[in-house]
């Protein structure tokens, strides 16, 4: 049930974020309007012809590149992170949905070693330092979400009337580097779960820091858990939730909750403290035991 609700939520989020179809019909290259001042809690390129909202990472880097403190973006990250942790990766991100759908295609499957998941923090540090030094959005230059959402549609469409010149005429080898990175992650997504989210996404890296603090979290009843690893086998982030319910990579997708035959895993919030039958356990959760 949770899986269906989540999939529906992912699709609706995608349709809500990328819904500027009018521009395609009227020849306007990208949306320019009031909602572009709001960032979404997921990687979503604002140069996508359909996008009505701004990308948090692109905006964050822009502020750093113009040497301004990104108060609004920092506050946004803090507020979303404190509320739901990394849940937006699992419930909102269109690029995450894309990778999940690719993984459904039958092919050779393998797991990425856990050590590689720490690479995203290196990417995050570079995405903070390099825009300040180079004065340009460094991560956007390599972002595969930007390639698939903005690069390919805009170059295929090439709205000369709206832009005044052809994008294809000023194409450089840089595009092929970006295209190569996208192909790399697409091929990887066929064989392993959410490779970009786990290894390279700086937005996921930021939200993961809040996973241990967030209001929404997972709870594992250790008295019921038999460590059968069914949860591990269905987890899109390949984590063992029973080892750490607040794992940095947990995207609160709820797949483990649905799959657990013992009913040992559930979502938890501070409101659980008001329910006497589970209140005692929840004190333990928020006492940072799990």
């Amino acid at each position: 049930m949770t899986a269906r609700i989540r999939r529906l939520f992912q699709i609706l989020s995608f349709l809500a974020i990328d819904s500027y179809y009018k521009g395609v019909l009227t020849g306007q290259a990208i949306y320019q309007g009031l909602t572009k001042r709001f960032v979404v809690p997921a990687l979503n390129c604002y140069s996508c012809p359909l996008s009505r909202f701004a990308c948090p990472m692109g905006s964050f880097q822009h502020f750093l590149a113009v040497r301004q403190i990104p108060f609004y973006i920092l506050g946004f990250f803090g507020l979303v992170g404190a509320s739901v942790g990394r849940a937006t990766c699992g419930w909102v991100c269109p690029f995450g949905l894309f990778q999940e759908l690719l993984y459904k295609i039958p092919s050779y499957k393998f797991r990425i070693p856990r050590i590689f998941t720490y690479l995203k923090y290196v990417v995050l540090v570079l995405a903070i330092i390099l825009p300040i030094v180079l004065l340009e959005p460094w991560f956007c230059k390599f972002c595969p979400a930007g390639t698939i959402e903005a690069g390919i549609p805009l170059l295929s469409w090439d709205p000369v009337q709206s832009l005044g010149s052809s994008l294809l005429e000023i194409l450089t080898t840089h595009f092929y580097v970006k295209y190569g990175i996208l192909i790399f992650f697409v091929v990887l997504s066929l064989s392993t779960r959410r490779p970009f989210c786990r290894v390279a996404c700086p937005v996921g890296a930021i939200f993961s820091i809040f996973n241990k603090l967030s209001v929404l979290r997972m709870y594992v009843d250790k008295s019921k858990c038999t460590k059968c690893d069914i949860c591990y086998n269905v987890c899109p982030m390949e984590i063992r939730i029973y080892e750490n319910a607040s794992d940095l990579d947990c995207i609160r997708c709820g797949k483990c909750q649905s799959a657990c035959p013992q009913g040992a895993i559930r979502f938890s919030t501070p409101l659980d403290m008001l329910r006497p039958e589970i209140g005692k356990d929840t004190v333990n959760i928020y006492g940072l035991r799990s």
Partner: peptide
């Protein structure tokens, strides 16, 4: 907010790959 809107309303050439 205005700065974000202004930036997001222009095509980011880095995002496109140019």
């Amino acid at each position: 907010f205005e700065e974000t809107e202004l930036n997001a309303s222009m095509i980011c050439l880095s995002c496109v790959g140019i």
